[in-house]
Design a binder for these strands. Sequence first.
DNA 1: GCTGAGTTTGCAATTCCATTGCATGTTATG
DNA 2: CATAACATGCAATGGAATTGCAAACTCAGC
Lengths: 162, 162
Amino acid sequence: MHSFSVGKLRIVLIFMYLCIAVQMMKKNVEDLLKAHNVSPTAMRMIVLDHLLDQQAALSLADLEKALAPADRITIYRSLRTFESKGLVHGIDDGSGVTKYACCAADCGPEGHHDVHVHFVCRNCQETYCLPRSRIPEFTLPVGFQPEEVNLVVRGVCQVCAG
Amino acid sequence: MHSFSVGKLRIVLIFMYLCIAVQMMKKNVEDLLKAHNVSPTAMRMIVLDHLLDQQAALSLADLEKALAPADRITIYRSLRTFESKGLVHGIDDGSGVTKYACCAADCGPEGHHDVHVHFVCRNCQETYCLPRSRIPEFTLPVGFQPEEVNLVVRGVCQVCAG
DNA sequence: GCTGAGTTTGCAATTCCATTGCATGTTATG
DNA sequence: CATAACATGCAATGGAATTGCAAACTCAGC
Ligand SMILES: [Mn+2]
Ligand SMILES: [Mn+2]
Ligand SMILES: [Zn+2]
Ligand SMILES: [Zn+2]
């Protein structure tokens, strides 16, 4: 009778770990969707999962490329659904194409609460959410009633400046 | 021999005043163009004069409508020229269409200096420059080097809130 | 399991704005 | 006037967002 080698055991353990990780990941994405009242379809789970992976915001074209051969319109409509349910927020960074990133705070169908600064790197073109950088107070002429604020900073990002 | 009535004299004086006013206006627009190294063509004077009249920023479509039957592309290229020479600045107010407004400060071909807040009214859809509302200080994570800032506030404007 | 209503998806088409190419018209200058 | 440089008008293009619609799918109720 022969025993498992350490190498084989390691491979089996890694495989089991990956299975569990993928399951947990899927479970997390699924639960996140359900928690926001969105039916967890295959496409939506793929889109949301990919968005959760990102450091920087993605455009529809980015997602289309990354998730090929998924249909662009389906991704587009997933994003709109997510946005309306407070799962992701669209970012108008001045480039002319909307970028999307996951909401950090407890946003919901009532609205988005995590108002933060966005940063666009003129070198790598990436768009980052900066949740730590709260938008400061500013004064408006009398009579103007603010409701939403969008602050976009252009410059060189951490990675490119490093 | 009969004399002028007071009424006729008044009309003549108003007419003369208007002639002089229009001349001065034209002279002002022409000088403004020349001062920024832009040949004062008929179209450019019309476009710039109309922009100087406005309280709120205008889109290309707005200008096209107001200045009909002037050619849209010619207006478009006038605006680009003005922008490059520091006469007007384009505003990305999040509506997806660029609005244009005259520069208040001493901008030039080197760049635009009058960085200010822009306000979009969700009721009347007008976009206003708020030159008095300076963009406040804000903090960025270490490593991010800011170069340009764009702050757009959405809400209800002075007129609509009245 | 089968059915039907409601939802989601994929493809085609449309709309809207920004931008470019090119031939013609205009201006400035000697 | 001649000529080069610049400005204009029309047509065409490009890219992104959005919509229409029919087929595919999901799921509760039989
Ligand atoms: Mn963000
Ligand atoms: Mn402005
Ligand atoms: Zn960068
Ligand atoms: Zn208003």
